[in-house]
Protein backbone atom coordinates (compact mmCIF):
# COMPACT_ATOMS: atom_id res chain seq x y z
CA UNK A 1 0.00 0.00 0.00
CA UNK A 2 1.27 3.43 -0.82
CA UNK A 3 0.47 6.10 1.67
CA UNK A 4 0.39 9.63 0.27
CA UNK A 5 2.92 10.90 2.75
CA UNK A 6 5.17 7.90 2.50
CA UNK A 7 5.87 7.65 -1.14
CA UNK A 8 9.53 7.12 -1.58
CA UNK A 9 11.11 9.76 -3.70
CA UNK A 10 14.63 10.17 -4.79
CA UNK A 11 15.99 13.30 -3.21
CA UNK A 12 19.64 14.26 -3.33
CA UNK A 13 20.67 11.48 -5.64
CA UNK A 14 24.32 10.79 -5.67
CA UNK A 15 24.74 9.03 -8.96
CA UNK A 16 28.53 9.18 -8.78
CA UNK A 17 28.62 7.14 -5.63
CA UNK A 18 26.34 4.56 -7.16
CA UNK A 19 23.37 4.80 -4.82
CA UNK A 20 20.21 6.78 -4.48
CA UNK A 21 19.08 8.32 -1.25
CA UNK A 22 15.58 7.20 -0.39
CA UNK A 23 13.76 9.16 2.24
CA UNK A 24 10.13 10.22 2.62
CA UNK A 25 8.77 13.74 2.42
CA UNK A 26 8.63 13.83 6.21
CA UNK A 27 12.39 13.34 6.50
CA UNK A 28 14.49 16.12 7.95
CA UNK A 29 18.19 16.53 7.40
CA UNK A 30 20.84 17.61 9.88
CA UNK A 31 24.40 18.53 9.03
CA UNK A 32 27.24 16.75 10.83
CA UNK A 33 30.13 19.16 10.47
CA UNK A 34 31.31 19.97 13.98
CA UNK A 35 31.55 18.12 17.26
CA UNK A 36 28.65 20.21 18.56
CA UNK A 37 26.51 18.80 15.73
CA UNK A 38 26.86 15.35 17.31
CA UNK A 39 24.90 16.56 20.34
CA UNK A 40 22.33 18.47 18.27
CA UNK A 41 21.70 15.37 16.23
CA UNK A 42 21.25 13.17 19.31
CA UNK A 43 18.66 15.60 20.66
CA UNK A 44 16.83 15.64 17.34
CA UNK A 45 16.74 11.83 17.24
CA UNK A 46 15.60 11.68 20.87
CA UNK A 47 12.75 14.12 20.15
CA UNK A 48 11.73 12.23 17.01
CA UNK A 49 11.63 8.83 18.76
CA UNK A 50 9.73 10.30 21.69
CA UNK A 51 7.16 11.81 19.36
CA UNK A 52 6.77 8.52 17.49
CA UNK A 53 5.99 6.77 20.78
CA UNK A 54 9.11 4.64 21.20
CA UNK A 55 9.57 3.17 24.70
CA UNK A 56 12.35 4.67 26.81
CA UNK A 57 14.63 1.70 26.14
CA UNK A 58 13.97 1.86 22.41
CA UNK A 59 14.58 5.61 22.40
CA UNK A 60 17.93 4.99 24.03
CA UNK A 61 18.77 2.28 21.48
CA UNK A 62 17.98 4.52 18.51
CA UNK A 63 19.73 7.59 19.94
CA UNK A 64 22.82 5.50 20.72
CA UNK A 65 22.85 3.97 17.24
CA UNK A 66 22.51 7.47 15.74
CA UNK A 67 25.37 8.67 17.89
CA UNK A 68 27.62 5.87 16.62
CA UNK A 69 26.66 6.49 13.00
CA UNK A 70 27.15 10.25 13.01
CA UNK A 71 30.43 10.00 14.89
CA UNK A 72 31.58 7.53 12.29
CA UNK A 73 30.64 9.99 9.53
CA UNK A 74 32.29 12.84 11.44
CA UNK A 75 35.53 11.08 12.29
CA UNK A 76 36.05 8.87 9.23
CA UNK A 77 33.95 10.63 6.62
CA UNK A 78 35.06 14.16 7.38
CA UNK A 79 31.48 15.14 8.18
CA UNK A 80 28.21 14.33 6.49
CA UNK A 81 24.47 14.49 6.85
CA UNK A 82 21.90 12.67 8.98
CA UNK A 83 18.36 12.24 7.70
CA UNK A 84 15.73 11.48 10.32
CA UNK A 85 12.79 9.86 8.64
CA UNK A 86 9.68 9.10 10.69
CA UNK A 87 7.80 6.09 9.31
CA UNK A 88 4.06 5.94 9.93
CA UNK A 89 2.64 3.04 7.99
CA UNK A 90 -0.34 0.81 8.52
CA UNK A 91 2.12 -2.00 9.37
CA UNK A 92 3.53 0.09 12.18
CA UNK A 93 5.44 3.11 13.33
CA UNK A 94 9.19 3.35 13.06
CA UNK A 95 12.14 5.55 12.37
CA UNK A 96 14.67 5.46 9.56
CA UNK A 97 18.11 6.97 10.02
CA UNK A 98 20.19 7.66 6.94
CA UNK A 99 23.75 8.90 7.40
CA UNK A 100 25.80 9.94 4.39
CA UNK A 101 29.33 11.22 4.09
CA UNK A 102 31.69 12.00 1.25
CA UNK A 103 34.70 10.51 2.99
CA UNK A 104 37.15 7.91 1.73
CA UNK A 105 34.52 5.18 1.98
CA UNK A 106 34.97 1.80 3.56
CA UNK A 107 36.94 -0.74 1.54
CA UNK A 108 34.98 -3.65 2.87
CA UNK A 109 31.57 -2.64 4.18
CA UNK A 110 30.86 -6.19 5.28
CA UNK A 111 33.96 -6.26 7.42
CA UNK A 112 33.19 -2.85 8.90
CA UNK A 113 30.10 -4.12 10.66
CA UNK A 114 31.98 -6.99 12.22
CA UNK A 115 32.93 -6.24 15.81
CA UNK A 116 36.47 -5.22 16.46
CA UNK A 117 36.96 -3.66 13.06
CA UNK A 118 38.17 -0.11 13.36
CA UNK A 119 40.32 2.25 11.38
CA UNK A 120 40.32 5.04 13.95
CA UNK A 121 39.24 5.87 17.45
CA UNK A 122 36.42 4.09 19.22
CA UNK A 123 36.13 0.49 20.16
CA UNK A 124 35.42 -0.87 16.75
CA UNK A 125 31.91 -1.34 18.04
CA UNK A 126 30.67 1.66 16.10
CA UNK A 127 28.92 0.14 13.11
CA UNK A 128 28.61 -3.43 14.34
CA UNK A 129 27.08 -2.25 17.61
CA UNK A 130 24.73 0.18 15.92
CA UNK A 131 23.54 -2.65 13.69
CA UNK A 132 22.45 -4.67 16.73
CA UNK A 133 20.45 -1.73 18.07
CA UNK A 134 18.36 -1.43 14.91
CA UNK A 135 16.03 -3.80 13.05
CA UNK A 136 17.45 -3.29 9.57
CA UNK A 137 20.88 -2.02 8.69
CA UNK A 138 22.52 -1.44 5.33
CA UNK A 139 25.89 -0.02 4.44
CA UNK A 140 26.65 1.25 0.94
CA UNK A 141 30.17 2.41 0.42
CA UNK A 142 32.23 3.33 -2.59
CA UNK A 143 35.95 3.80 -1.90
CA UNK A 144 36.94 7.36 -2.67
CA UNK A 145 33.33 8.53 -2.92
CA UNK A 146 31.68 8.09 0.43
CA UNK A 147 29.46 5.96 2.61
CA UNK A 148 25.74 5.76 3.22
CA UNK A 149 24.27 3.86 6.16
CA UNK A 150 20.52 3.24 6.36
CA UNK A 151 19.01 1.83 9.56
CA UNK A 152 15.41 1.30 10.64
CA UNK A 153 13.84 0.47 13.96
CA UNK A 154 10.11 -0.15 14.50
CA UNK A 155 8.32 0.67 17.73
CA UNK A 156 6.68 -2.69 18.11
CA UNK A 157 8.55 -5.70 16.86
Amino acid sequence: MTHPGEEAHHGGESADAGWALETSEAARSYPVRTEADLLTVRHAVRDATEELGFSLVDQTRVVTAASELVRNAYVHGGGGTLFIDPLRQARGVGIRLVVTDEGPGIEDARQAIVDGFTTGSGLGHGLGGARRLMHTFEVHSVPGKGTMVTAVRWTDR
Binding site: L56, V57, T60, R61, T64, H125, G129, A130, R132
Partner: peptide, 13 residues
Protein backbone atom coordinates in the same frame (compact mmCIF):
# COMPACT_ATOMS: atom_id res chain seq x y z
CA UNK B 1 19.91 3.53 34.27
CA UNK B 2 18.30 0.35 32.89
CA UNK B 3 17.99 1.62 29.28
CA UNK B 4 21.65 2.61 29.28
CA UNK B 5 22.73 -0.81 30.62
CA UNK B 6 20.61 -2.66 28.05
CA UNK B 7 21.91 -0.55 25.18
CA UNK B 8 25.55 -0.98 26.23
CA UNK B 9 25.18 -4.76 26.41
CA UNK B 10 23.55 -4.83 22.98
CA UNK B 11 26.35 -2.64 21.63
CA UNK B 12 28.69 -5.37 22.86
CA UNK B 13 30.27 -3.29 25.62
Amino acid sequence: RPPVAITLVELGI
